[in-house]
Design a protein around this nucleic acid. Structure first.
Lengths: 220, 220
DNA sequence: GTTCTGAATATTGGATCCAATCTGCTACCG
DNA sequence: CGGTAGCAGATTGGATCCAATATTCAGAAC
């Protein structure tokens, strides 16, 4: 009667989707790369069917481009795209925070502090992937608290779109001290139900990151 | 060498996707309906493969729900969902209009007037489906002019989410006179590059529609 | 030398078939 | 009588195979 101690995805599509996302974050699937279905499917140990369904999801999210009979390509982000993504984030994150502060609980604040600690720990361990992941957990704890599932989903897509490039931001050690401080300030504001301060901190957080990512794109 | 006079979709998935959207707008696929893949595929004259890929796109857009091994269900909209959709539209449409007025051309204004005339004509012909379609063309001419493709895509998804219910708004003859006037005011403002007025008109437009749709949902 | 034509190849799109999982019903046990 | 185990049917998930389309490259015409 032992239940499996780890959760394996119930379908291959989901496993493939998760793996594709991972590969795109790590740069294993670099922007602009055409996706050869057969080769990739074999590499993942599945047939082309679940791969194609996973790709359709990514297409819907704008993570890959698609042309009929020509196949999928990992999406590239121009500077214009980046500006657009961050502008949309600015509008939607402010709204999410405004709604979320109305639903703040002690549990939420505690969970955010735990996530912030994970960011710090991963920073000391120099684990960039885990910094990125923990940072994301922290912010989406807040966004999800807004109780606006579509908004949260759109925000996830916007974050996904720039995940590839965001890692470069966290790779720089210099930023980590500032990030630590910004997280502290953000969580304190949330604990006080102070939406406007939280929004301002979040905006500053974004501004630093957009500058770093712009540099990363232009120098590539 | 005669090129086909009509454009048939190059893939079955696209044809199926378009047909599914149509069926959802017309209510042929009502919210809450579980989707039986085999039956639906046969009805559309294709195998289950392209159907499943089309459903994945709709899943990504939130138009259908999905649970592993249990299948797809046409998404239902609660009043909360509706409020969320319209709040997101408020934020994003204002941004789109602000960006779009910077790119207004005479051609755009002319195209918008043509679309507005189509709305009126369809209204006189009592063709609700065409009213909805022309209304959508009109507004997205403006949104697309913003030159922010992700923003436009997100807006399309938000419009899609409520398309089923929006038809009820246009079904009421009383609304058509007001819609005509609002469209005129909107286009005039756009022609003057007057973003704030355009945003205000758009907001009023939405407010009327949200009230009608809310009523439609609650009385269902 | 350039450009067009067309066949050969690679790649994607779709159909069919089989496996895995869920659902509903029946029978059995407490 | 209530509950649970398990079996049968229905439905979805995935693999393989075939068809349709795009791409590449060789060769001929200008």
């Amino acid at each position: 009667m032992s239940t499996a101690p780890f959760e394996r995805p119930p379908t291959a599509q989901e496993a493939v989707l998760a793996e594709l996302r991972r590969m795109m974050v790590t740069g294993e699937l670099a922007p602009g790369t055409p996706i050869r279905q057969e080769a990739l499917a074999e590499r993942l140990g599945v047939s082309r069917v679940p791969l194609r369904e996973a790709l359709k999801v990514l297409e819907g999210e704008g993570q890959v481009g698609y042309a009929a009979h020509r196949g999928y390509v990992v999406a590239e982000l121009s500077v214009d795209d980046l500006v657009e993504v961050y502008r949309m984030r600015e509008l939607l994150e402010a709204e999410a925070i405004r709604a979320a502060v109305l639903n703040v609980t002690d549990d939420l604040v505690a969970a955010m502090r735990t996530a912030a600690a994970s960011v710090d720990a991963a920073g000391r361990a120099d684990d960039v992937a885990e910094i990125t992941a923990a940072n994301r957990r922290l912010h989406f704890l807040l966004f999800d608290a807004a109780g606006m599932p579509r908004l949260a989903r759109t925000l996830r897509q916007l974050w996904d779109a720039t995940d590839v490039y965001r890692s470069v931001y966290f790779a720089g050690e210099a930023n980590r001290e500032r990030v630590h401080h910004e997280h502290d300030t953000l969580i304190d504001a949330v604990a006080r139900r102070d939406a406007e301060t939280a929004i301002a901190v979040q905006a500053e957080h974004r501004a630093h990151s957009v500058a770093a990512v712009t540099a990363a794109i232009t120098t590539r």
